[in-house]
């Protein structure tokens, strides 16, 4: 008698799939003012990323309890890996591993929003431009915001500099957290450094295509499109204890306080990185 049950499940799946297609074709879905499309993200983007997260990078999460279950918070991580896959894997971690299944709203450079297609994928998956008005708006809407203050200095650094945090700029992200009184959650991501070991950067070519850098890795551009396959490193994502920003609420406009707090966050992440690296002696461990 197990056959009908199987049938029901199949029927339900077909019906759900068709209903999804109908909603998409007739435009009957909701997006928020930033262009975030939760349905598309959950039904299309995340299933693809999830395969990469589990099967390819075998990602493990440590101390996900440090991520607040509700309310706005600024998640600050280290950036690496030539292509910003670490941001996408972090968003899978926040959604899948935390009981509240929170969506991480990523912040991207204006370069991302200049590119056709990429800009729209970014908006639909919940990202927005890394600028203070947007960050504050998201935090006040009680969203989880993900930021990588190293920016291109982080993703575009050489393999020899792996797991060395770059400068954090002036700490604009900190002033947004101070102004909204939301906590900062430091995150250390181990594994992204090894996916595309960056050996060099062909600057004239980068300038030609308008990219911040043109990467040379052991496989790219030598193997052509095959060189785009990331190396299957072992990933660990560790969430640190939230840093309460309310004691500094009045100092959002004080550059010295903001800079010092940004530096404190940077130190915390650097220490977490070193500790987490020791848990993973072999970068390509199972």
């Amino acid at each position: 008698m197990s056959v009908p049950e199987y049938d029901d499940e199949f029927d339900e799946r077909v019906a759900a799939g068709l209903a999804f297609v109908r909603r998409r074709l007739s435009g009957q879905y909701q997006i928020d003012e930033f262009g975030f499309d939760p349905e598309l993200t959950e039904q299309v983007f995340q299933p693809v990323l999830r395969q990469l997260y589990h099967r390819w990078f075998r990602t493990e999460v440590i101390d996900v309890k440090n991520l607040p279950g509700e309310g706005g918070a600024l998640v600050v991580g280290n950036h690496s890996g030539t292509v910003a896959l670490d941001a996408l894997m972090l968003s899978v971690a926040c959604h899948d591993e935390h009981p509240a299944h929170r969506h991480l709203r990523l912040l991207g450079a204006d370069f991302v929003f200049r590119m056709p297609f990429v800009s729209e994928l970014a908006r639909k998956s919940g990202a927005t431009l890394a600028c203070n008005p947007d960050v504050e708006r998201l935090l006040l809407a009680e969203e989880l915001v993900g930021v990588f203050p190293e920016g291109f200095k982080g993703v575009g650094k050489r393999f020899a500099d792996r797991y060395k945090l770059q400068r954090f700029g002036r700490g604009g992200f900190v002033s947004a957290a101070l102004r909204t009184g939301k906590p900062i959650v430091p995150v250390a991501i181990v594994g992204a450094e090894e996916i595309y070991p960056l050996l060099g950067n062909i600057k004239p070519l980068a300038r030609l295509i308008g990219a911040p850098y043109f990467p040379v890795t052991p496989t790219f551009p030598w193997l052509g499109p095959l060189g785009l396959v990331p190396l299957p490193s072992k990933w660990l994502i560790r969430f640190g204890e939230p840093i309460d920003t309310t004691p500094y609420a009045d100092a959002a406009d004080d550059p010295a306080v903001v800079f010092n707090l940004a530096d404190q966050v940077r130190e915390t992440i650097q220490t977490m990185l070193h500790e987490t690296l020791e848990l993973r002696p072999d970068p390509f461990a199972p």
Partner: peptide, 8 residues
């Protein structure tokens, strides 16, 4: 392209 998502 450097505009915020929502204008006040």
């Amino acid at each position: 392209f450097r505009d915020p998502a929502v204008f006040t």
